[in-house]
Amino acid sequence: MSFSQISFLQTLFGPEVFAAALRVMIPLLLAALGGLLTKQAGIENIGLEGLMLIGCFSGFVVNYYTSNWIAGLIGGAVFTTLAALLFGVFVISLRAHEIVAGVAVNMLGLGVTTYLLRAIFGVKGSFTDPRIRGIPTLELGFLENVPVVGVIFSRQSIMVWIGLALVIAIHFLLYHARFGYYIRAAGENPQALSTSGISLPRTRYITVLIHGVLCGLGGAYLSTGYLTQYVENMSAGRGFIAMAAIAFGGAKPMRVFFSAILFAFVESLSNRLQLVEVPSYFALMIPYVVTVIVLAVTSWREKQKSKTSTL
């Protein structure tokens, strides 16, 4: 193998690519974890994008006024949960169509944040301030000199670790905790849940609230961890990619985690493709092409599955 080929592969598949994929994955992953919970409980929420954006903005505002990143994260989670509660009221209590309510959440998210950005800070477009305290990175000194692993894990944001822990926590919740059984029953067989004396609305409400917290954390990470600025509509479609990850992962936490990391990896890879003389328009297209292919495969697989189950 010639020298140029080696450096080509290092550019594309060096450990930095995986470090980048982890960073890029977190907002996707958190929103996807939230969305998979409601999907398990029988509510398809396409409003992840709007909830994330509310998380971005409220996390940013609270961080700005308190100059404290923990307060910012909590603030993002609280306000996003309130917005999710509103979604829940419409879908669960008022029985609105979940897709319509989801679209409304997306529109509300964009509208309210754009308006408040102007009302609170008097600016349009973007805002940043030295008062913002970014979510710190966790320096793992003992990993620093380990090859490959050191580059990937030694200097990641605390949120990366929280995100990975949440994958395990949600997996445990769904498959090893009593409330997780309720959530899945609410999705698979709501009548059975009701007849066994468990309140269906209560189960769904709690699920929607947890999903609000997760989306809020994902959003707040974007505006106060990944970046320390707020930009209008900064979720930039990540909520929809999260939905694709949920679909590809069949709403199962571990699989959703792997699809989120797949999407994030493809994105970081496409960034690096430009460095090896791939035209930018082609490189930038790749993540979307992969998303389309993945979704096509998913729906084909589901079709096959439903064919075999009817036989």
């Binding site: 477009g125 970046l227 960034n271 460095l275 930018s280």
Partner: peptide
């Protein structure tokens, strides 16, 4: 000079990611 294109006028998250990629290089 290594150059990268964002493909978007208003996606600072991606802008940052590309700059980090260049710094890594």
């Amino acid at each position: 000079v290594k150059s990268l294109i964002v493909g978007d006028h208003n996606d600072p998250a991606k802008g940052k990611e590309l700059a980090l990629t260049l710094f890594d290089q």
